[in-house]
Every structure is written in structure tokens, then in C-alpha cells.
Nucleic acid binder design. Structure first.
Lengths: 340, 340
DNA sequence: GTTCCTTTGCAAAACGTTTTGTATGTTGCT
DNA sequence: AGCAACATACAAAACGTTTTGCAAAGGAAC
């Protein structure tokens, strides 16, 4: 029981050569051996509990069946789990395993980890970030097929996948307008990042389609935390012509808006409707009432990245693509028609 | 540039045999070769950008330098990140890589993933759960050194690590009592799990040490969500003799207690002090005022699991141990002396 | 009865390491 | 000078696969 059974043991037990065993189990080459023999070999292999050593086959085939995923700050954000799960599911469906490595913000460490992955002969690497940004990937990645996940590379020869930030903003506008709101404000992230620009542009476009616009006085930017959202909301809600609906850059800021509303004695959603982005279950579900929010498609992006990587491995000439994945609305109870 | 350089190339370029190269680079065996030669070989290897193929050395050494970690529900909880990070940091410090696999609740899939890990010849496996529980590990794990993480195995021959639930309860009691509270209540998880029992017992012990106790009327159990905490808190705070401090099973329930307090017009911390467990940054930091809470040591548990696994690999006879890691208090602003 | 396929199976080489055992010189000692 | 002891380097085997090329056996066609 203790010692592992290898292909030679199977061959001996089945009374054939290792070649035959290999062919019999190989699916692709099983035509080279008699159907009866195939059955027999399979039975014996199963009996013995044979499992091929993928180190050996990887060595022989120059194909480890391992994908690396390098990410930053897996700890501080709850998004990592979904991305990894999506990647892992896709990998597993195609007989691959995932090696995860996260190096925080230490660049030198990151390169070291990447080299470690390469030593293990990973077939490809997914370079993941925890929020949509422009990155320049470490040069060691030039030696390996690479996909950029939740970021865009300055090197256009790397395929990448990001959330459709613009679409998220658009849908949020659509939701609020169609609920009847005419007096709408937005609390945006003060950072100069694609998510901030994209969501704002989409939101404006969505309003514009209904002949509305976002006056400057209705747009406040802040640090993207609960406290930031709270302060911004207090500012917006203090004015005389109080907005009846708020689109917040993310769920944490939306939570801050809830706090501001509570502080001012405003009822959500009757006095104030709120929409967030992220669909952080921990927050959106916990708020009272539940927060309607645009879900960031981390799971799907993880899947997409692996699928794309595998397809580029299969066919190295495949064109590189840059995908935007839609952010579906998750409706809870924070949006209602304006009081009137 | 495209093609990989192997040990043979280095040997050729350095004008020595592969044996010599191997020994020269091996640290342990470098005494078998002239110091000058070692330098020369190293220089040539570096020049050529040589990186050893760990598939090959794993095959030869019967040691892949890969650890597997199988977990459940990495998606739905934000704890996974910290555990994986801890495990990965420790692994990386010792020249190992981590293969992550998560199978949700699908048992059959889980076994399949474990077999996949075994085919890749992982040196050991960490069987992780997302909350402290009693598990019986899949039988395929008997073939591989295994550590149980954030759970206890029914098989005592498997080392395991869990949070010190009892200590967390105790510290919470200590904190509230020493702030001057005498009228304290607890909202516990209704589930029959070690965390619920441990935290309650520890809390009682902590009160007991100061000659206090937790009357039955001051203990409410509920579903461990924000809504559950909210309902429970409303119930506790409705009574005439209102408690001045609340110990909540976790941060989500604590958030519910905040909502209840807000609803009743109670000020935190002046009218009501609250302590949680988990230190979910996303919640504890976002609440207003910040929530003081006992941190669950996921990062440390992940580290411990890998370190222990490596030590058992090094020395297979090492005694199995069952570790409890302390839950440090993270102070924010939700605890104050009782009014008056 | 010879030739020529086809089917079925096997031996051997290769993937890139590590390690054991051995060969060659070199030094030190008597 | 002779011999042991040592320092240094190498050849070869092994880890467990996969695949190429070849051999043997069995039929079919002439």
C-alpha cells in the first residue's frame, strides 16, 4: 500500500510491455493495441490503483499541465477568492492545476516567484491584479504565455480581461432613471483609475440617453472607503435641493452613504435610493435594507483568463484579445421610486 | 532566447561534465568540486540564464517541492485569502510552491482534485476549511502527509490547527469587564460548532474570574448573519434592564447590533459597547464607530500548517500536534466605560 | 509458395536531473 | 622509490513516462 505503483508494475501484472500499457491508457493511441488488451490493461491498472506520475509525463511531453497565477494583495480584498475559483474551475475542467503565488507589493519578490513558477515548467501564467489598472508586466513573463487578469497591459501583445466599467455605470443610471429619479448624484473614487473614469462616463452616458445630465454640483469624489462615502454623502445631502438617488463608486462608499442617511434621519430607499458597485456580499447583503449593486464579474474573469490562456497554448498564433465582461445588476432593496 | 538552457548546455559552455555542474550548484555537494571550478560554473550558469527544471529534479529526487492545499468555499468567505497567503509565504520561504484546489461542497469533485494533486506528486497536503469544524478527511489523503487547517480531524493522527476560540471569548470578557461593564450580554451563533461552544465557554470563564456570570436572559442565539444579530440585539435591548455591553459571535452579527442600536437611538459606544470576533476589515473598519473585535488568526494558521507539514516531511516520526492559535484583540472605537 | 499489407506488440531512446561508483592525478609519508 | 590517502572530475544509471521505429505473426492476393 505504501509504495506507489508505476506503469511498469501495471505492465508486469497485465503481462504486457510498458509500451502497450501506455498506448492502452492513452485514448489517442489506443488504436495501436487490440481492444481486448485495452480492456485488460485498464482493468489491471484500475485494480492496482495506478495513477500516472505527471512529473514524468510532464518531463517527457514538455507540458506540465500546470498554470501559474500571480496576484497582488490576495489578503486585503475579498475578490481574490472568486477570481481564483473561476480560474481553478476552468483549469480543472481541462485537466490542469493551478499554482498560486502572491507577492504583495514587493516587486523583487514577485519576480522571484515568477521564476519559481517557471522552474516548475508552468505552461502559462495569469497575471492578476485586484483592481482594474494599467500594468507593465515583469520582463520574465516574456518567456511564458501570459494573460492579464483584471488589468490591462501596456504591452498589447498580452491578452487581457477587465470588467465593463462603462456598462456598469450605464446600467446604474438606467436603473435609477427608470425608477423615476430625476435628481441624481454620484459619489466617485478620487483615484485616477479606469474604474473611476469608466463608471462615471457610463453613468453620464446612461443619463444622457434620457436627456439628463450630471451637474458638477452632483458629483463628489472621495477616498473609496466607508468614511469617504459617508463624508461625500453628507456633503451631497446637505444642500437644499437634495438628490433622491445616489450612485456610489463601490459598496463600501455606499455603506458610508447609508450611515450618512441614518445620521440625517433619511429612510432608504424611500427618501434616498442607493446603488453601489462590487456586490461585496459581506456588505451589500448586510446593509439594512439590502444594497442593490452592480456585481464585478471576478469569477467570470478568472474563467475567461484560463480559457483564453489554454486556447493560446493550443494555438500560439491565435490573435490576442482584450475582453470586457459585463457587470450584472444584483437587485436588493435600496432602490425605490422617489417620494413625491 | 526561445529555447531553454539545461544543465548539459551549462556543462558544455563551462567545459566540464554535467556531474560537475550539478555538484557545483548543489551547495550540499559543492565540496566535491574545486572552489575555482564552482565559481566558474556558477558564472557560466548565470550567464546563460540557467534555471533547473524542477520537473526533472522532482522526478529524480522523489520530491516535487510542491504542497497542495484543498479548501472549501474560497469564494464566499474573505478568510481564504489570509490563510492562503500565510501558507504561501511559509512555503515560499522554504523553496516550495502551493497548488490550490477548491471544490466547494462537492465531495466527489474534491476527491478528484486530491487525486490530481497526488498525480502531480505533491509532497504533502493541507486540508483547509473555512470555519473551525470537525471533519473526516477523504480517505485518499491517507497516502500523503496531511495537515488539517482551521478544523479538527476525527483522525487524531493528523496534526491540526484552529483558532483559540476559548481564549477569544475570555479576552472579550476581560475587555468589557475592565472597561467597567457589569451588565453584559452575548449574542451567540445558534449552530452546534466549536466556535460557538468555545467562545461562549471562554466568555463565561472570563466573567467568572471577576465573580460575574452570564444569566440565561443575557444570552441569545441566532443565525450568524447581520439580520440574525440585529434581531437578537433588538430582543436583548428591549428588556427593562438593558445591558451596557454586547459580545457578538462575529462581526456580521455585531453589525446587526449596530443597526439595532441605531434603530433604538442608542449611541455606540456610550450607550452600548460592542465586541465582535473575526476582524473582517471590510466590516469592522467600515462600521461607525470602528468595531473592536477579536481577530481570527487565519494568516498565522496558514503559516503554521505549512511549517508543520514541512517538519513532518523532514522527520516523518515527529509527533502529531493540535495547535490553538491565539486571537488577538483589535481595538477600534466600539468599547467605552458604561455611562454613569 | 511467395509477396505484401495489417495488426499487434515490444525495445529503446528521450525528457533533465541527481548520485554512486570509479578513474585519474597529486600530495604526503615512510 | 613506493604506497597510501586525498582531491578532483567524470561516466552511467536511475526516476516514470511517451513515442518512434522495428519485429513477428497472421491474412489476403497473386
Amino acid at each position: 500500500m505504501a509504495t506507489k505503483v508505476n506503469i511498469r508494475d501495471v505492465a508486469k501484472a497485465a503481462g504486457v510491455s510498458v509500451t502497450t500499457v501506455s498506448h492502452a491508457l492513452s485514448e489517442a493511441h489506443s488504436s495501436r493495441v487490440n481492444a481486448r488488451t485495452v480492456e485488460h490493461v485498464k482493468a489491471v491498472a484500475c485494480d492496482l490503483g495506478y495513477a500516472p506520475n505527471r512529473l514524468a509525463s510532464g518531463l517527457r511531453n514538455q507540458r506540465s499541465q500546470i498554470l501559474g497565477i500571480v496576484s497582488d494583495e490576495i489578503t486585503t480584498t475579498p475578490f481574490a477568492g472568486a477570481m481564483i475559483q473561476g480560474a481553478q474551475d476552468a483549469a480543472s475542467e481541462h485537466g490542469h492545476l493551478l499554482m498560486v503565488v502572491n507577492s504583495g507589493l514587493d516587486n523583487e519578490l514577485e519576480r522571484q516567484e515568477i521564476r519559481a513558477l517557471q522552474q516548475h515548467q508552468v505552461d502559462g501564467i495569469i497575471y492578476a491584479r485586484m483592481f482594474n489598472q494599467l500594468v507593465s508586466v515583469p520582463e520574465e513573463l516574456q518567456a511564458v504565455p501570459t494573460i492579464v487578469l483584471d488589468a490591462t497591459s501596456d504591452n498589447p501583445r498580452l491578452s487581457s480581461v477587465v470588467p465593463d466599467e462603462f456598462g456598469a455605470g450605464e446600467s446604474a443610471a438606467e436603473l435609477l432613471v427608470s425608477a423615476g429619479h430625476r435628481n441624481i448624484a454620484m459619489i466617485n473614487n478620487e483615484d485616477d483609475i479606469p474604474a473611476a473614469h469608466g463608471r462615471l462616463a457610463g453613468f453620464q452616458a446612461g443619463l444622457d440617453r434620457h436627456g439628463m445630465q450630471l451637474p458638477e454640483s452632483r458629483l463628489v469624489v472621495a477616498y473609496p472607503s466607508t468614511a469617504g462615502g459617508r463624508e461625500a454623502a453628507l456633503e451631497l445631502l446637505a444642500g437644499s435641493e437634495r438628490p433622491t438617488a445616489l450612485f456610489c463608486f463601490n459598496d463600501q462608499m455606499a455603506m458610508g452613504a447609508y450611515q450618512a442617511a441614518g445620521h440625517l434621519g433619511l429612510n432608504i430607499p424611500d427618501d434616498l435610493s442607493i446603488v453601489g458597485v462590487d456586490n461585496l456580499e459581506l456588505i451589500a447583503d448586510a446593509l439594512w435594507p439590502g444594497l442593490s449593486t452592480m456585481a464585478l464579474p471576478h469569477y467570470e474573469m478568472g474563467r475567461w483568463a484560463v480559457l483564453k490562456l489554454l486556447s493560446e497554448l493550443e494555438n500560439p498564433g491565435a490573435p490576442r484579445t482584450h475582453e470586457k465582461i459585463p457587470c450584472p445588476l444584483v437587485e436588493r432593496d435600496s432602490v425605490a421610486p422617489p417620494r413625491n
